[in-house]
Simulated assay, not measured.
Amino acid sequence: MGHPLPRQTSSADCGTEDTVALEGPTLRKPPARHDSPPGRLPSAAPPTDLLDGVARWRQADTAAGLFRLRPVRLEADLPLLHGWMNDAAVAAFWELAGPASRTEAHVAAQLEGDGRSVPCLGLLDGVPMSYWELYRADLDPLARYCRVLPHDTGVHLLIGGARDRGRGLGTTLLGAVARLVLEHRPRCARVLAEPDVHNHPSVAAFLAAGFRYCEEVALPAKRAALMVRDRAAP
């Protein structure tokens, strides 16, 4: 069951209230190992780490506490992730509600891939409270629908527990993660996100975290607001 290629809705050059911060993947199926955007030749032997060692990144000192990203350990973390994905507020955007096997397949596809997408837990003062996917946007199907620069890094996220929503954490952690990406990925000039244009609180959180609204893009599963955090942003 395929979708016709959507038409990009803007020709803009994008080179240059609190939130639950729920944003799922642009395309539900992760790209195959050598599924590169048009015009790019896949490497014969792609490296296993395309995101500069997320597991080794430092923790960030934020107004909410010490925050760090830790790559998912599927067997240990699956019960927690499965519970989050079956929260109604999360399921509305991630569409992974149902049996644990559905969440497992989604995460395992990234863990077993070539390293272009890294699923992580976000730990605040040592407590898992959010789920993140950092991905190479230039190697992702997103690059088929809008202009993406080499080494651009994309972000998907969700705040897991209801008690952590409505506290301003979305904006705080988005800013922290954007800074971590740019600090640890020197070749990356921009951090991207593509929240649904109708998810106004999420778009507002990205703007408050230093992202700028770039353009509206038609993707197979949604109309997205392409948000960009430039390296030069404060």
Rank of each mutant, 00 (worst) to 15 (best):
Y145K: 07
H106G: 03
D114S: 15
L123M: 14
P128Q: 14
A162T: 10
A143Y: 03
V127T: 11
M129S: 13
L142N: 00
L134M: 08
L124T: 11
A100S: 11
G98D: 01
R144K: 04
L123T: 09
P128K: 11
P119F: 06
M129R: 11
Y145H: 10
P150V: 05
R136G: 06
D164N: 13
D152K: 00
R167S: 14
W94M: 09
D114V: 15
S117W: 09
G168C: 13
V127R: 15
R102H: 13
T153C: 15
G98Y: 01
L169C: 08
G122D: 07
A143H: 03
S101M: 06
G166F: 09
G122W: 11
L124P: 04
L96T: 06
D140Q: 02
G113H: 07
V148I: 15
G115L: 09
H106M: 05
E104T: 05
C120I: 03
L123I: 08
V148S: 10
A97Q: 05
Y135S: 13
G126W: 12
D114P: 12
G166I: 13
P128R: 13
A162N: 05
D125T: 00
G160D: 11
G98H: 03
R165P: 04
M129N: 11
W132D: 10
Y135L: 10
V155D: 05
D138M: 00
L111A: 04
V118M: 02
C146Q: 03
D152E: 10
I159F: 00
Q110H: 09
R163S: 15
P99C: 03
T103R: 09
S130P: 01
A162C: 06
H151T: 04
R147H: 15
S130A: 11
R163P: 12
G160H: 05
R102D: 13
L142K: 00
L157S: 09
C120W: 12
A137R: 05
L149V: 09
V148Y: 07
R167Q: 15
S130H: 05
V148D: 07
D164S: 15
W94K: 03
D125P: 01
C120N: 07
G115E: 12
W132N: 05
G154S: 10
R163K: 10
L158N: 09
G166C: 13
P128W: 14
G154T: 08
V155E: 11
L121F: 07
C146F: 02
R163Y: 07
D114M: 06
D114T: 15
A162E: 06
L96V: 01
V155F: 08
A105T: 12
R167T: 14
V155K: 06
V148W: 10
